[in-house]
Amino acid sequence: MLISEAFSKFKTKQKNVNWSVSSFNNNGELVVSLWEQYFHKTSLNGKTSMTYIDKVSRWSGAGQKEFISNLDKATKTETVVRTIIARTNNPEVVDKGGDASKLKNTFAPKLNWIGKLKVWDGDNFEIEFIREI
C-alpha cells in the first residue's frame, strides 16, 4: 500500500505526499507513519502494548519540521495517536537517517491501535499503542 493510501484509511491527507509523515484527521487524532524496526513489545500487569521509541534528530528529511510541530501540538492537547507501520527493504539506511523515499517501502495502517505520546522532549519520543477491542 502507498503511504497516501494508508493515510486515507484514517480519513486524512498528507500536506505533501512526497515528504509528510504525519497529519491530523478530522477527529483531531494525530496519524503518524513510523518505522517497523523501532517498535518494541511491552507487557505490564498482563497488558501488552507496542511502544515506538525514536528521535527526530536521527533523520533530516523535509517532513521533520512538520513532524516536530505535530508532536508539539499533540503534547499540549493529549491527542490520540494513530499509526501506519512503514516497512523498508533497507532498514540500515533508515537507521542512518538516509533518504528513505528512494527505498522500496510498504505502509500498513493499524486501524485498531490507539496510541498516546508518552515521551517528547523536542528530540526523543515514545508512543505507546494498545489494541482496541
Rank of each mutant, 00 (worst) to 15 (best):
Y38W: 11
D99S: 06
T48H: 13
K15W: 02
V56E: 01
L117E: 11
K96Y: 00
E29K: 08
F7K: 04
A100V: 01
S4Y: 02
S57C: 12
I127N: 08
A100Q: 09
K118P: 06
V17A: 14
E78D: 13
V32W: 00
W113K: 10
K96S: 12
Y38R: 15
N27D: 11
K110Q: 13
Y38Q: 14
N27W: 01
K76H: 09
L34W: 03
F7L: 04
K76Q: 14
S101K: 07
T48K: 15
V56H: 05
S60F: 01
F67R: 04
T42P: 02
K116P: 00
K96H: 07
V80S: 13
A74P: 15
W59V: 06
W19Q: 06
N124G: 07
T48N: 14
S4V: 10
K116A: 12
N70A: 06
V119T: 12
S101R: 08
I68A: 10
T79A: 15
N16A: 07
V80Y: 09
L71G: 11
F67D: 03
N124P: 05
I130K: 15
K102P: 01
T79I: 01
R82G: 05
I133H: 15
D72A: 10
V81T: 10
P91K: 07
D72L: 13
S22N: 08
F7G: 05
V31R: 06
V93N: 09
I85H: 12
I85A: 04
S101V: 02
S8V: 04
T42F: 05
R87M: 08
K9P: 00
K13F: 04
L117G: 08
M1Y: 02
A74R: 09
F129H: 14
A86W: 04
D121M: 03
K11R: 14
W59P: 02
K116W: 02
Y38P: 06
E132C: 13
W35Q: 07
D99P: 00
A6E: 04
Y38H: 15
P91A: 09
K65C: 02
N124E: 10
E5R: 13
V56S: 10
G98S: 10
T106R: 14
H40W: 05
I133L: 15
L111G: 09
N70Q: 11
G28E: 07
K104F: 00
N112Q: 12
M50R: 06
T75L: 13
